[in-house]
Design a protein around this nucleic acid. Structure first.
Length: 519
RNA sequence: GCACCGAUGGUCUAGACUGGUCUAGGACUCCAGCCUUCCAAGCUGGGUACCCGGGUUCAAAUCCCGGUCGGUGCACCA
């Protein structure tokens, strides 16, 4: 019976295991679960929320503050004019036709383009129906007749105010807030090119079929930078030398045409020089992303940057590169890197009448835009998969999160609840919390069970208060990865934890470093 | 959105075909207490479930219909 249980667990797909532990340990829950849920919507639980905060803070520090970018927080709900200008109202919309016989759905414009080689892009459903009728187009799978075409807009529509029909949309990307605030930010912050505007926030897309846990959802979060450059600055971005030798795993269009799946490693400088990527600014951000993913616990062996094919990118793109990660469910887009050129600012200038040019050396220019857009939920999922462990040395599953992402830094436990150990542990817990550590406290059950629980949510260190602690003010620190322990004096606890959480020293070394300091 | 399949405590599941001893059983988990000076395994007690709505029937976890959610395939994924 026991063996049977273990074997079913081992046979489970990784995504299912991650989902189980997420529900069980408070990482992610289905939204409105007690009412049967809503497809494509999830809530973060307490543990997931801590992780999400750590991820966003890390990004904020590394992608925003260290670059001197300006972070804003824009409205989720926006008027239709924004999306007329951005092109989402026309392009983010698929006209679908359904076969009367076999009920298959197709994109009406694709059917027309495939069969009679007529560009039907952007036509209204009525026009599409007419073309289909005139050319007697039928279902590719069963030759049946089509029903009338219907618009399927991927944006979620709502109403504002008391008057019927006053339409607004939930934003399908965070980018537009940045473009429509571009002038305000540039002026209020006296920004000089090149500069960046960053934003993290929710976006909404009415996906036809959300699937695969938190990978394809209707509401998700982006951490995004729009980096603005004068044209001549694109090949000479700030700090470029710092990352010029970083290696990028690239999958070029050429390689894709040949059916090659495995990326080739090219340094940023080489990629720029060989024109494998649009410009140095793009290369700089790709390198930065790779480092970010490494720092938050994603195995970089699983990363590639894929040059999107022309049909996958909008016409104004100067070359998009997706950061894809090889998950158990296949290669998955986690970051979209778009070279949007001047498209958005020019379009908003045209539609709104607001001049988007900003002062630059001699005169006004409309800057070029590089957009690294990181999916928060997908990144968290990648971290979960990449850090998930089932090992021989323990009967439970665990997460090998780096401290940059682990929900807690440390758990504090009394060895047992008696003889004053609980009070002492409580004191130490509160002290550590006061020092700014993310710390949890637990007294229930045996110590081994508590270590297992800490492992299961990937807490790197546990501090245990035992009988010796009561005598000589020393405590043990247990290392999640090795299950080894060291004993430190309470006076050193704070420093030791800081050393350990910096990840710069091996667990064994830290004891010696402290001993050294005391001499 | 289509087709097929599925849904029982926090998790894995028994029961469903053949409606009624099912006031739904087990294992793990969880909670309380005892025991225990370091890796989920001892003892005692306890908590928690038939996805939602309707129908058939004397009687529904079980049969039927609709919905929701999930899986797979198709389609979709600016």
């Amino acid at each position: 019976m026991e063996e049977l249980k273990i074997s079913t667990k081992e046979n489970k797909p990784l995504l299912d295991k991650i989902q189980d532990v997420s529900f069980r340990r408070g990482i992610v829950f289905p939204a409105a679960d007690i009412y049967g849920g809503l497809a494509g919507a999830f809530d973060y639980g307490p543990i997931g929320t801590l992780m999400r905060q750590k991820l966003i803070n890390f990004w904020r520090d590394y992608f925003v503050k260290s670059e001197g970018h300006y972070e804003i927080e824009g409205s989720l709900i926006l008027p239709p004019k924004v999306f007329e200008a951005s092109g989402h109202l026309a392009k983010f919309c698929d006209p679908l036709v359904q076969c009367k016989e076999c009920k298959s759905m197709f994109r009406a414009d694709k059917i027309i383009e495939d069969k009679i080689e007529l560009n039907a892009d952007g036509l209204a459903p009525k026009e599409l129906d007419e073309i289909i009728a005139k050319n007697k187009l039928t279902c590719p799978s069963c030759d049946g007749a089509f029903m009338n075409a219907r618009e399927f807009n991927l944006m979620l529509k709502t109403q504002v105010g008391s008057v019927e029909g006053n339409v607004a949309y939930l934003r399908p990307e965070t980018a537009q807030n940045i473009f429509i605030n571009f002038k305000r930010v540039a002026h209020s912050m006296r920004a000089k090119l090149p500069f960046g505007i960053a934003q993290v926030g929710k976006v909404y897309r009415n996906e036809i079929s959300p699937r695969q846990f938190i990978i394809r959802v209707r509401e998700f979060e982006q951490m995004e930078v729009e980096a603005f450059f004068a044209e001549e600055q694109l090949d000479n971005p700030p700090h470029f030398e710092e990352l010029a030798d970083e290696v990028l795993p690239l999958l070029t269009r050429e390689m894709q045409a040949k059916g090659i799946k495995k990326s080739k490693n090219v340094t940023v400088a080489e990629a720029v020089q060989k024109k494998l990527i649009p410009n140095a600014a793009m290369g700089y951000y790709l390198a930065k992303e790779k480092i970010l993913f490494e720092e938050v616990g994603v195995n970089t062996e699983l990363i590639r940057f894929r040059h999107m094919l022309p049909k996958e990118t909008p016409h104004y793109s100067g070359g998009n590169f997706d950061l894809e990660i090889k998950l158990s469910i296949g290669w998955t887009e986690v970051v979209g890197n778009a070279f949007r050129q001047q498209y958005d600012l020019i379009s908003h200038e045209k539609h709104s009448g607001t001049k988007m040019a900003v002062q630059h050396t001699n005169g006004n220019v409309i800057p070029f835009v590089i957009e690294p857009s990181i999916g928060v939920g997908r990144t968290l999922y990648c971290i979960l998969e990449s850090c998930y462990r089932e090992t021989e040395d323990r009967d439970w599953t665990w997460f090998q999160f780096p401290p940059t992402i682990s929900p807690y830094d440390v758990h504090v436990y009394p060895l047992m609840k008696k003889d004053g150990m609980e009070d002492k542990a409580q004191e130490i817990f509160e002290e550590l919390r006061g020092e700014g550590f993310e710390v949890a406290f637990d007294t229930s059950g045996k110590i081994g069970k508590r270590y297992a629980r800490a492992d299961e949510i990937g807490t790197p260190y546990c501090v245990t208060i035992d009988y010796d602690s009561l005598k000589d003010d020393t405590v043990t620190i247990r290392d999640r990865d090795t299950m080894k322990q060291i004993r430190v004096h309470l006076e050193d606890l704070n420093d030791v934890l800081i050393l350990l959480l910096s990840s710069e020293y091996a667990f064994d070394e830290v004891e010696d470093i402290i001993a050294e300091q005391q001499k």
